[in-house]
């Protein structure tokens, strides 16, 4: 059943706002990676900006690299040039869903408005890439995977999930499709997502087997499978049976994350 924004309690409204901001920023980042034209349209120094939502905790940032920037200038280039401030959760949810709403761009240094322009272009480009059937599977999988995992991270702390999170064991899950790799760290009520999992330590049990194993390993057979599952076209439990997804290791940890995933799609279904 569809849920309307006004039906959410205050905490849920805040969580949804953070989720929308996280997704917008992460997708903009992935669009930057995927699209040379978009990169060219941005400042040669890269883009660093923040989104803040009134009453919804610390701000979230976008920091897309600029290879061309000489080392001494890097630190400055990475300082956010803009804070896009939404006075309320509702405003954030509306604007970031493409509806009309109120946002205040707060320049923090030079280049603020070019960053805002970039963010807008990147957001619509990400949406296009996700919708366009001609988008290469690799790019679509990257966008969907980032959105899903960072989406989990954004909602994990909410109180609705707390009881569930309590019975899910803590640990690390490596998520892999072809050469894309993330590590998801579940610790108490929090979920943290990191890129390039191999660098991160795993448990003693993992070490006993193979030094790089996480507590659980989740892998998609190929980009297509990842897209089908992450876009909701195929249920994860079905994909497991058909071999499009494989899970090894600490199953209750992964099952627990599936529960958070259900909650994520509930949030994404909220209507304005």
């Amino acid at each position: 059943m569809k849920v309307h924004f006004a039906q959410l309690n205050q905490e849920e409204q805040r969580v949804l706002a953070r989720l929308k901001a996280t997704l917008a920023l992460r997708l903009a980042e992935k669009a930057w990676d995927a699209d040379p034209a978009l990169r060219q349209s941005a400042s040669a120094r890269g883009v660093a900006m923040k989104i803040g939502v009134g009453g919804a905790g610390s701000s979230m940032s976008l920091d897309v690299p600029a290879e061309a920037v000489p080392e001494p200038e890097k630190a400055r280039a990475r300082r956010p040039s803009l804070k896009l401030y939404f006075p309320s959760a509702e405003a954030a949810v509306k604007v970031l869903s493409g509806a009309k709403g109120f946002a205040i761009p707060l320049p923090l240094r030079g280049g603020a408005f070019s960053a805002l322009g970039f963010f807008k272009r990147a957001s619509s480009r990400a949406t296009e890439l996700l919708r366009d059937p001609a988008t290469p599977a690799e790019i679509k999988a990257k966008l969907l995977l980032a959105a899903t995992l960072f989406g989990l991270q954004a909602i994990a702390g909410e109180s609705y999930l707390a009881r569930r999170m309590r019975i899910v064991p803590d640990g690390t899950v490596r998520v892999r499709v072809e050469d894309i790799e993330y590590i998801v760290i579940k610790n108490g009520n929090s979920i943290k997502v990191q890129k390039n999992a191999s660098a991160h330590a795993t448990t003693s049990a993992g070490n006993f087997l193979e030094p790089t194993l996480a507590d659980a390993e989740l892998s998609f057979a190929d980009y297509r499978s990842a897209i089908e599952v992450l876009s909701g076209a195929r249920q994860a439990v079905v994909a497991l049976g058909s071999g499009q997804v494989r899970i090894e290791g600490l199953l209750p940890l992964v099952q627990g994350l599936f529960a958070v995933l259900d909650r994520l799609s509930w949030y994404l279904g909220v209507e304005l």
Binding site: T203, A205, G206, F208, L209, E248, G249
Partner: peptide
Amino acid sequence: DEDPNLYLNQ
């Protein structure tokens, strides 16, 4: 004993 993560079980 060496694998509470169940890889060996599986």
